[in-house]
């Protein structure tokens, strides 16, 4: 089975993480290295990482965690070096800032015999990590594209807001374009909104000035969707188009749950995957169930019917 549902994984982890299940174990230190909270999604990553660590620490006395957040790839490399040099970690859970610059440093960690879990962004070289937990970026674009295709049977004009220019963004957009290919849906404008509300607001304002007719917007991210929504409201063109973001921000999921007309669906790309990864890694030291391999968390379409199970009111994201 290549894919594993997030909820299923979390359930496994929760079962094993139940207090009392722990025998006296050798103590282990797990390093967690993630990007700093520079936008909504990474904010969610930070929240879920902290959350998972708190939960596991409370349950198991033998687990130590080192959490480091980095503002840039080079900072993240320094974090790894510090973890190796001063904290003597046994395992590393890393969400790499960028694939290429971190491949070498993570490989050195693996070469030292440490257990390595890579999250979300794969390394540039195969076979370094023991465990890979990631969202499905092409799937993220494809699911959104399929929804557009279904909803706009007669075709139509849409605009697309892209994220920060990266491989992730390219994979998503490419899959989206493939999914709508031949459907009669025409992308009349595509600009970078950098996964940022303010940028998305301004880009959308300009799209609205430029195109008298827009049938739908693929904002490709919930932060951007919020900015787009505001621009559309300002122009008074709410009835004209629908907006699809992505990632699973709680406000958006709430809206989907309540049957919002303008943002009818969402595509999941859960920041909670970091928590899953940490828990799966911890299993090795508490449950003698060594988990290895690749876990690709699917990007399901969230609709009014299933929204409730993806709603975390306490998460900041």
């Amino acid at each position: 089975m290549r894919t594993l549902k997030l909820m299923a994984a979390a359930t496994v982890a929760a079962l094993l993480a139940a207090p009392g299940a722990a025998n006296a174990q050798e103590s282990a230190t797990i390093g967690v290295s993630i990007p700093a909270a520079t936008h909504g999604w990474t904010g969610g990553v930070n929240y879920h990482a902290q959350h998972a660590i708190d939960r596991l620490k409370a349950a198991y006395d033998n687990l130590e965690f080192v959490l480091a957040t980095a503002g840039s790839p080079s900072e993240q490399v320094s974090d790894l070096e510090d973890m190796m040099a001063t904290r003597n970690i046994d395992a590393l859970v890393i969400l790499p800032f960028e694939s290429d610059p971190l491949t070498g440093p993570v490989k050195r960690v693996a070469d030292e015999g440490k257990f390595v879990t890579v999250v979300d962004r794969g390394l540039a070289q195969d076979g370094i990590e023991n465990l890979y937990v990631a969202g499905d970026n092409p799937g993220f674009g494809r699911v959104a594209g399929e929804y557009f295709r279904e909803r706009m049977i007669d075709g139509g004009k849409i605009v697309v807001l892209r994220g920060i220019p990266t491989t992730i963004d390219n994979e998503r957009v490419q899959a989206f374009e493939e999914a709508i290919d031949g459907s009669g849906i025409e992308i009349i404008g595509m600009e970078h909104g950098n996964w940022n509300r303010d940028d998305a607001f301004e880009v959308m304002q300009d799209f609205l000035s430029r195109f008298p007719e827009i049938d739908a917007v693929w904002a490709s991210d919930d932060d951007m969707a919020m900015g787009v929504l505001e621009a559309v409201r300002q122009a008074g063109r709410e009835g004209e188009m629908f907006i699809v973001g992505g990632a699973g921000m709680k406000q958006v999921i709430k809206g989907v749950m309540d049957g919002d007309e303008t943002i009818p669906v969402n595509v999941l790309y859960p920041p909670a995957m970091i928590g899953t990864a940490i828990e799966l890694t911890a299993l090795r030291y508490v449950g003698q169930v060594p988990v290895e391999g690749r876990y690709i968390l699917a990007s399901p379409l969230i609709t009014q019917e299933n929204a409730e199970q993806y709603y975390y009111p306490d998460s900041p994201f």
Partner: peptide
């Protein structure tokens, strides 16, 4: 009042 929100990416 424009977006009714603030985050660490505001004003970058």
């Amino acid at each position: 009042p424009r977006l009714g929100s603030a985050s660490s990416s505001t004003g970058v």
